[in-house]
Amino acid sequence: MPDGYSTLHPAMHGMVNIGVRAARRAGEIMVRHLNRLESLEVIEKGRNEFVSAVDRLAEEAVIEVIRDHYPEHAILGEESGASGDHEYQWIIDPLDGTTNYLHGFPVYAVSIAVAQAGTLKHGVVYDPLRQEIFTASRGQGAQLDGRRIRVSKQISLRGALLATGFPYRITASRTDTYLDMLRAVLIETAGVRRLGSAALDLCYVAAGRVDGFWELGLQKWDIAAGTLIIREAGGRISDFNGTDAFIESGDLVAGTPKVYAALSKLLAPYARGL
């Protein structure tokens, strides 16, 4: 799709257009460095949690575009942390799927959300390899490359394809809980996929490519944009108690309305100990 369309589409809210422009700028940096992966500086922030020079460059590029248009807005970036004090806050994951990226595994994305006084208003997720732009504005529906998307029509776990992510920032006991969840889901569904990018997992639910998703221990920047995109595509997302506390806890379940309900019921007994 021509860059001019996706960054200056008249039907999109101005903040979404800026988010798309920023995401594309970050994506260009990722693609440009693909043939230099072995020489990238990589730091291990925590166990199985890495940050590369590309993460930092991509976030700087995103922030630069935002600052050019909304210099007064607050920002929460995965790499740079929180800055500013304003009712509007941009929530940025410049490279969701860093481990994939560093291994040349072609699944990663840029995730950018805008919250107003804590309420999600806009979301953008960009897959730079497929050049797919997922967008949403509160009350305006969700789009993929400017075309309306909806969750699938799947009504039960039987025959459903789900996505998940393996926890890597949590305790051994929570890992055991997750493995119990995975076993239960495998028995009840058509299959489970693990992409390695929660932002894309959420967008794939919104686009009907998978019917549901669950994960433990995610960060706000991983899920903010995807949360709005799912809801605007007619899906449901919450923590295992049905509340929005997942934005802070990172423990979540999502899907088509009926898959979400069935998955929540299936996983609830395991989630009590979280």
Rank of each mutant, 00 (worst) to 15 (best):
E59W: 03
G141H: 06
V210P: 06
R24E: 04
G4Y: 07
A113T: 06
A58I: 10
L263F: 02
N17Y: 11
E248R: 03
G255Y: 04
Y204S: 13
E215W: 00
R158I: 09
R150G: 01
T243G: 03
E87T: 07
D68G: 09
K153R: 14
A74D: 10
N17M: 14
L216F: 12
Y101V: 01
E38L: 06
E60Q: 15
G255P: 03
G139E: 02
R236W: 00
V205F: 04
A74R: 09
E28W: 10
A53T: 12
D68Q: 14
G27T: 01
T98F: 08
I133R: 07
H9P: 08
I66H: 03
L8N: 15
A245T: 11
P269W: 06
H103K: 15
A160V: 14
I18S: 11
E44L: 08
V110M: 00
V16W: 02
R193K: 11
D251K: 01
D180R: 15
Q140T: 08
A117L: 15
G14D: 14
V51F: 11
I75F: 08
L263K: 07
E79R: 00
I237F: 02
H103D: 15
D222H: 10
V253G: 01
L162T: 13
L95C: 07
W90S: 01
S111L: 01
L57R: 15
D244Q: 07
Y126F: 15
P257D: 05
I247R: 13
I149S: 03
G139T: 04
E44N: 10
D96G: 05
E72K: 10
R21E: 13
A206Y: 03
E49R: 15
D251F: 04
E59D: 08
L266F: 07
L182I: 00
C203W: 04
P71L: 00
I149A: 03
V42F: 05
D96I: 03
S137K: 04
M1H: 13
I149N: 03
R56E: 15
L129I: 12
I75S: 07
A224G: 04
D211H: 13
G250H: 02
E72H: 11
T175W: 14
